[in-house]
Design a protein around this nucleic acid. Structure first.
Length: 793
RNA sequence: GGGGAUGUGGUGGAACUGGCAGACACGCUGGAUUUAGGUUCCAGUGCCGUAAGGCGUGGGGGUUCGACUCCCUCCAUCCCUACCA
C-alpha cells in the first residue's frame, strides 16, 4: 500500500476489475427482492455536463446501497439519440447525424465509465438505432389499430425561406433562427395520440405513486380537469350556441356572451357584417406579433347577434372576443363580469353592465363563494347547491348537461425533420394506412449524405400510387417507453420479454424537474396503453420519483451563453471520480439546487485524502498498539450509524450521509493520541469497516481499494450491517434539563430511575439549581428519556 | 393572474415526528512544520459583552412549558404555467 492517495491509479484498477468481473450485470434472481433504479438517459450532445454527473452520482449511490442491502439491482443506461442538435451539427460540420451521434456516444460512455457508475452495459440502448425504433413503429401501429392515433390539421411554424417547419425553440421573436425571416403559421396534417382518452386515469393515478407533491400538482394542473355545465343558448337567428361554464350558478349575472374569433359561426356572421373581418385581422396581428407576450389586451367586437337568456328571456349581445379560446370548451363563454376577472376587465372596457349575484363583502369581481342574490329562485343558495339546481332546471328547458372539461390536449407527435423515427404510415389515394413493410428505415445515401424525407423522392414514393409519410416522431416518443425496453434490449424478436415484467416497475426514477410534465406524463400514458395492449403489467411505470435540483454556478444555471459552465473532465483528471461524486452528493440535498464550488470540491478531496492517511496508519498498526477501552468509540459513533442508515433508507438525504462519514473519520482520528490509541482493536476495526461500507456507494473506488488493502476483504461481498448494529445501548439516557424552556444542563441518567428520582437529580445540578434559586416552581414538564423543563414564575 | 419552492453565520448547508440552533464542510484568523509558497497538523471562528449573561433562523403577530419547525399576515428571491370560462 502506498502512503499517498493516488486516485488515478486506484480508479482505473478498480474500474477494470468491475469490467472483467461483469460486476453490474443484472439477471433475474427470484431469491432476492428486485430493485430497478433508473436515471434519465442523456441526449448524446458530446460531453457530459455537471447536471448529468449529479443525476448519475445520486442514482449510482442508491443502486450500490440497495445492493449492499441485499437487493437484486438493475441500473441501466442508454442514449436518447434522436433530435435536432444532431441535424444542426450535421449541417455545420458536414457529417451525417448518425456518425456525429455515434461518436458522441462513444465519448460520453467513456466519461460515464471514468466516473465509475455501475451500469449494466449489456442492456444499453440507443434510441436512434433501428433495433430500437423498429419496435417503436410496431407499438405506434398498435396504438393506431386501437384508435389511439389519428390525423388532424394543426398549425406549425413555417420558415418561408428555408421552406421548413420550425420547432418552437427555433422561433426567436417571431423570426426563423437561421434565416431571420418572419415565421408564418401554416396549417398541415399531423399525427396525434389520444392521450385525452386517459385523462381521468392519469389524474387519479397520481394518488398511488410516491412522487414529490409539486410534480403531482403540476401534472394535475396540466390535465386541468374541471366540472362544469354546458349550456345551449338560443339566439335570435335560427341556430343555437353552446357555452361551457364552471359557474352555472352565476347565470343571472350574465350580461354579455363571448365567442372565439375562430368560432365556426364567425364566418357566417361575416357575411352581413363587414366590420368583423377587419377585427379578426387585427386580433391575428396581436396574437402573432406578441405571441410570447403574456398579456394581450382584451379586445372584442360587438356583433348584431343576440342570445336569449334562458331564464329572463332577455336579449344579450354576442361579442367576438380575443380571450375566448376555440380549443377549450365550446369556444364560447357566458360573460359574468361580476364574478370573473377577465369578464370584469372586458365589461369595464366596453361599458357593459356588471351585476352582482353572489353576496360578499369583497368588491367585484368576486370569484369566491357566498349566498346568491339577484338570482330569483336561486337566492340564498350557496354556489354548489345552486350549481345542481340550475343545471337541472336548464337541462329541462334548454339542452344543458353537467360534464368535465380538460385542459389536456391530444399529443401532437409529427415532426417535419430527418433525424427521428419515421412514422410508419403510407397513403394510397389520400387514405392513410400502415406501411406495407416494416421497419421503415431512415434512408442514408451511399455517399453518406442525407436529405429531408419529403425531399427524398425514392423514399417518398416507394412505388406508383403510394406516398409515404415523411414526418418523424416527436423525440418524446422514444423516451416514453425506453425504461421498459432496457431489460430485453438484446432481444431482437420481442419488444418486451419475461425480463420486462420481472424488473418493472421502476422503483426509483431520478431526473430533472424540467421533465415534470411532458416526459413523465407521456411515459405514464404510454405505459397504460401498453398495459391495455397486454404488453406490460401494472398501472404506473415509476413508483418513486426523485427530482434532483440544478447545478448552479455563481447562483445561475450553467449555460454556454452565460459562459459559466464547468467541464467535468478536468476535475475528474485533477481530483478523481470519487472526489467529484462525493462533492456532488455532499454539497446539498438531492432535490435542491447545488452551487458549484472549486473549494467545496477540494474539501471533499481532502476528506478522501484523510481517509487514505488513516487507512495507511491502521494498516501499519500491530495488535499491541491498540488500547483497552471497549465500546467507547462505538458508542460515540452510534448516533451517526443510525443517521446514515435512516438517511439512505427513508429520506434519501445523501448529503448528510457524507457529513456523518466525515464525523466518523474525525472520531476515529481523535483516538490516535500522543499516549497511544484510545480504542480496542475490535472497536476501531468495526467502526472503520462500517465507514468504508457506508461511504462506498458514494466513493466506490477508494473504499473498494481500502477494503481489500486494509481489511483483506472484497467490498462486493460486503453486506449492510443488520438491525442490531443500529440499536442503541439504553442503560443510560441523556436528559436535557431546561428552566423556563432554556437548556441549562444535560446529564446522563440511569434509565432504571423513577421519574421522581430523575427530577430530584436534575434539580440538584449546579447550573440548574442556580437558576431555580428563590423561585417558585409552577410546573414541571417531564418527557421520559428526553427532557425535564422546570417552569417558574 | 394561477401553482409551487425557498429564505438559518462571511459561504454551501445541518437540526428526521415541536425539545441543546449553526452539525459537517468552505472561507477567514492565529500557531506548528517548511528557506519560501503549497501540502499537512493544532487552536479559534453567529452577534453583543471582560464576564455572568443576553440577543439571534426574512419582518410582524399568535398557539405552546418550549417554535427554524405549527397557525395568521406581510416581504424577498427563484422555478413552472398562463386569458382553460
Amino acid at each position: 500500500m502506498k502512503e499517498t492517495y493516488n486516485f488515478n491509479q486506484i480508479e482505473s484498477i478498480v474500474q477494470k476489475k468491475w469490467k472483467t468481473n461483469n460486476t453490474f450485470a443484472a439477471n433475474i434472481d427470484t431469491s432476492k427482492p428486485k430493485y430497478y433504479c433508473l436515471s434519465m438517459l442523456p441526449y448524446p450532445s458530446g460531453n457530459l455536463h455537471m447536471g448529468h454527473v449529479r443525476n448519475y452520482s445520486i442514482g449510482d449511490a442508491v443502486s450500490r446501497y440497495k445492493k449492499l442491502k441485499g437487493f437484486n439491482v438493475l441500473q441501466p443506461m442508454g442514449w436518447d439519440a434522436f433530435g435536432l442538435p444532431a441535424e444542426n451539427a450535421a449541417i455545420n460540420k458536414k457529417v451525417h447525424p448518425q456518425d456525429w451521434t455515434e461518436e458522441n456516444i462513444e465519448h460520453m460512455k467513456h466519461q460515464l465509465n471514468s466516473l465509475g457508475f455501475g451500469y449494466d452495459w449489456n442492456k444499453e440502448i440507443n434510441t436512434s438505432d433501428q433495433s430500437y425504433y423498429k419496435f417503436e413503429q410496431e407499438l405506434f401501429l398498435k396504438f393506431y389499430e386501437k384508435g389511439l392515433a389519428y390525423r388532424k390539421k394543426s398549425l406549425v411554424n413555417w420558415d418561408p425561406v428555408d421552406k421548413t417547419v420550425l420547432a418552437n425553440e427555433q422561433v426567436i421573436d417571431g423570426k426563423g433562427w437561421r434565416t431571420g425571416a418572419d415565421v408564418e403559421l401554416k396549417e398541415i396534417e399531423t399525427w396525434f395520440l389520444k392521450i385525452t382518452d386517459y385523462a381521468d386515469e392519469l389524474e387519479e393515478g397520481l394518488e398511488n405513486i410516491d412522487w414529490p407533491e409539486n410534480v403531482k400538482n403540476m401534472q394535475k394542473n396540466w390535465i386541468g380537469k374541471s366540472k362544469g355545465t354546458e349550456i345551449e343558448f338560443e339566439t335570435d337567428k335560427n341556430f343555437t350556441l353552446k357555452a361551457f361554464t364552471t359557474r352555472p350558478d352565476t347565470i343571472h349575472g350574465v350580461t354579455f356572451f363571448g365567442i372565439s374569433p375562430n368560432h365556426p359561426i364567425v364566418k357566417e356572421l361575416m357575411q352581413d357584417d363587414v366590420g368583423i373581418e377587419d377585427f379578426i385581422e387585427e386580433t391575428k396581428q396581436i396574437s402573432s406579433a406578441e405571441a410570447d407576450q403574456a398579456k394581450a389586451d382584451k379586445v372584442g367586437y360587438k356583433t348584431n347577434l343576440n342570445i336569449i337568456h334562458p331564464i329572463s328571456k332577455q336579449k344579450i349581445n354576442v361579442w367576438i372576443i380575443n380571450y375566448v379560446l376555440m380549443d377549450y370548451g365550446t369556444g364560447a363563454i357566458m360573460g359574468v363580469p361580476g364574478h370573473d376577472e377577465r369578464d370584469f376587465e372586458f365589461a369595464k372596457k366596453y361599458d357593459i353592465a356588471i351585476k352582482r349575484v353572489i353576496d360578499s363583502e369583497a368588491e367585484l369581481p368576486f370569484s369566491g363563494s357566498g349566498p346568491l342574490v339577484n338570482s330569483e329562485d336561486l337566492n340564498g343558495l350557496m354556489p354548489d347547491e345552486a350549481f345542481d339546481k340550475i343545471s337541472n332546471i336548464l337541462a329541462e328547458s334548454n339542452d344543458a348537461k353537467i360534464l368535465y372539461q380538460y385542459r389536456l390536449r391530444d399529443w401532437g407527435i409529427s415532426r417535419q425533420r430527418y433525424w427521428g423515427c419515421p412514422i410508419p404510415m403510407e397513403y394510397k389515394d389520400g387514405e392513410a394506412r400502415p406501411a406495407s413493410t416494416l421497419p421503415v428505415l431512415l434512408p442514408v445515401n451511399k455517399d453518406g449524405t442525407y436529405e429531408p424525407l419529403h425531399q427524398n423522392e425514392s423514399f417518398r414514393y416507394p412505388e406508383p400510387g403510394i406516398e409515404r409519410e415523411t414526418d418523424t416522431f416527436d423525440t418524446f416518443m422514444e423516451s416514453s417507453w425506453y425504461f421498459a425496453r432496457y431489460m430485453s434490449a438484446q432481444n431482437n424478436k420481442k419488444v418486451f420479454d419475461e425480463n420486462t415484467n420481472y424488473w418493472l416497475p421502476v422503483d426509483l426514477y431520478i431526473g430533472g424537474v424540467e421533465h415534470a410534465i411532458l416526459h413523465l406524463l407521456y411515459s405514464r400514458f404510454f405505459f397504460k396503453v401498453l398495459r391495455d395492449l397486454g404488453l406490460v403489467e401494472g398501472d404506473e411505470p415509476f413508483k418513486k420519483l426523485l427530482t434532483q435540483g440544478m447545478v448552479l454556478k455563481d447562483g445561475a444555471k450553467m449555460s454556454k451563453s452565460k459562459g459559466n459552465t464547468v467541464d467535468p473532465k478536468e476535475y475528474i483528471e485533477n481530483y478523481g471520480a470519487d472526489s467529484i461524486r462525493t462533492f456532488m452528493i455532499f454539497a446539498s440535498p438531492p432535490e435542491q439546487s447545488l452551487e458549484w464550488s472549486d473549494n467545496g470540491l477540494e474539501g471533499c478531496h481532502k476528506f478522501l485524502k484523510r481517509l487514505w492517511a488513516l487507512s495507511y496508519r491502521i494498516k501499519s498498526l500491530k495488535d499491541e498498539d491498540f488500547g483497552e477501552s471497549k465500546d467507547i468509540l462505538i458508542d460515540e459513533c452510534k448516533d451517526l450509524f443510525i443517521k446514515i442508515n435512516d438517511d439512505y433508507d427513508k429520506r434519501l438525504n445523501l448529503n448528510t450521509v457524507v457529513s456523518s462519514c466525515m464525523e466518523i473519520l474525525n472520531n476515529i482520528n481523535k483516538k490516535f493520541t500522543a499516549k497511544g490509541i484510545e480504542a480496542s482493536k475490535e472497536d476501531l476495526m468495526t467502526v472503520y469497516d462500517f465507514l468504508l461500507v457506508a461511504l462506498s456507494p458514494i466513493a466506490p473506488h477508494i473504499t473498494e481499494n481500502l477494503y481489500q488493502e486494509v481489511l483483506g476483504k472484497e467490498l462486493q461481498e460486503a453486506k449492510w450491517p443488520d438491525k442490531k448494529f443500529f440499536e442503541k445501548n439504553e442503560s443510560e439516557i441523556k436528559y436535557l434539563i431546561q428552566v423556563n424552556g432554556k437548556v441549562r444542563a444535560n446529564i446522563m441518567i440511569d434509565s432504571a430511575l423513577s421519574e421522581e428520582e430523575v427530577k430530584q437529580l436534575s434539580k440538584e445540578h449546579e447550573n440548574v439549581s442556580r437558576h431555580l434559586e428563590n423561585k417558585d416552581i409552577i410546573k414541571v414538564i417531564f418527557i421520559k428519556n428526553k427532557l425535564i423543563n422546570f417552569v417558574h414564575s
